[in-house]
Design a protein around this nucleic acid. Structure first.
Lengths: 246, 246
DNA sequence: GGTCACTTTTGATGCAGGTCAAGGAGCGGG
DNA sequence: CCCGCTCCTTGACCTGCATCAAAAGTGACC
């Protein structure tokens, strides 16, 4: 939990510099961004914004994990977005948050005041281009997710989630796990249930079943070990070579 | 079925001119677009592209309805996008189609050759800006859809779909239906089932149930009459004032 | 008008996953 | 060390939707 310290004036040292919305910025564009940026920290479990709230900033996730979710009045909740480091939060042109945003771990945001950011998007191409690219990636992820929600069995859903997290983890650290994989499960059972459209009981049961069948093994409660990644992929129901786009 | 005729050189007369990806174009930008555009027609039921196919164009839907869908090897299918007139098809920067695209009615596309379109996006701001806006709208729609898929009951799913189509219909013709609504149901039972993550039997049963409960009435097989739109909204499970963003 | 192909509706039955309930397991604080 | 809290697991039971099956439209074509 050692608080990371960022030099508020040095984007060059930023850990997400090459993947975030500012990835393509020229030095002068970066300067303009630095003028309107500020960091905010949230503790695990804290709400970052509520759906419907006024939102006077947009932001990049610098570290930690946050979720976007939608709730119905009776309490049913569906996660609709999972924000990892470098992901973008907020929508230019929109004043109110459309979803609840919650910190799942301790989170650091690099916030940009909304108005100036919107102007910046209209006047400089590189931020807008990168944002389009990221939005298209998110849309692809959302569509993959829709297949999971609409057509997969509980077991396939759990396997798919594990595969997605393992892939992202690998992408972040640029390591191509030879065959097996080991990763931290950053979500509670409840968050997994909200992600997958299941109940926590079903999540728990299916994880136990995958463990029983030696598809996965748990170290502690949060570390997952996958002895044979292809075996896991087979359990997702997707075709062998795996078409997940994110 | 009277074939619409477009003047291939006159974007000004185009029925989707003000809503499509070209909506914000200046005359000179429009000229550049006209150089790389061509129309294609597809008949109802025809496949426009298959997921994985090479795709050397992107396009706007001029008329008709098309679906994006994903299939698993065993045949389970999930619709992940519904393209109405003015919606955009394809992704700049991607050579292969990510999804199956199927014409649900007779469809006319305004196609742009991919390479020149990509260049155009990098050099002129208005197309890219509009595309970002449209993509963000699609992402919102996808997230609404995820709540439907993950957490709603079959009855709520059907009611939600009816409400979405009624809203879009109203938006297209700019008519604010006073209280009730009447609209054409452009989808087969199978397409509805693929949209909602249900079977056609369940779709049929729930429509019968809504009919029995006087939430909707059918005229013929494809025209839906909603005597009290708020009653329908109540059946969707969303909060009263309705947060659907599209 | 009759036939064939296809879509839709309806009924009967089964099961995956939800619901309700009761313990464990891990952990910070007194 | 025990208490109280939160998170997770497991069991027993139930229900909403899928599945299987068949009948009833619907409409194109001869």
């Amino acid at each position: 939990m050692a608080e990371l310290v960022f030099d508020a004036n040095d984007c060059a040292a930023c850990p997400i510099r090459h993947r975030a919305v500012c990835a393509r910025c020229e030095p002068d564009e970066l300067e303009r961004l630095e003028e309107i940026k500020y960091y905010r920290h949230f503790e695990s479990g804290q709400h970052i914004v509520w759906g419907g709230d006024q939102m006077d900033f947009v932001a990049s996730v610098v570290s930690g994990i946050a979720t976007l979710s939608q709730a119905m009045e009776d309490g049913r909740t569906q996660m609709v977005g999972l924000l990892l480091p470098s992901d973008f939060l907020g929508r230019p042109g929109r004043k109110e948050a459309a979803y609840d945003v919650t910190a799942v771990s301790d989170v650091t945001l690099c916030c940009f005041r909304r108005k100036p950011f919107e102007q910046l998007i209209e006047t400089t191409p590189h931020v807008a281009q990168r944002l389009l690219e990221m939005t298209l990636d998110e849309l692809d992820a959302a569509r993959e997710w829709m297949l999971i929600l609409g057509r997969k069995t509980a077991r396939e859903k759990i396997a798919s989630l594990m595969a997605i997290i393992a892939r992202r983890e690998a992408a972040l650290r640029m390591s191509k796990a030879a065959n097996g994989a080991r990763f931290e499960l950053p979500l509670t059972r409840e968050a997994m249930a909200d992600y997958l459209g299941l109940t926590i009981e079903t999540v728990s049961r299916q994880i136990s079943a995958l463990k029983r069948d030696n598809v996965i093994a748990l170290e502690g409660k949060r570390k997952v070990l996958v002895p044979d990644f292809n075996r896991l992929l087979a359990e997702t129901g997707d075709d062998a070579d795996g078409g997940l786009l994110i």
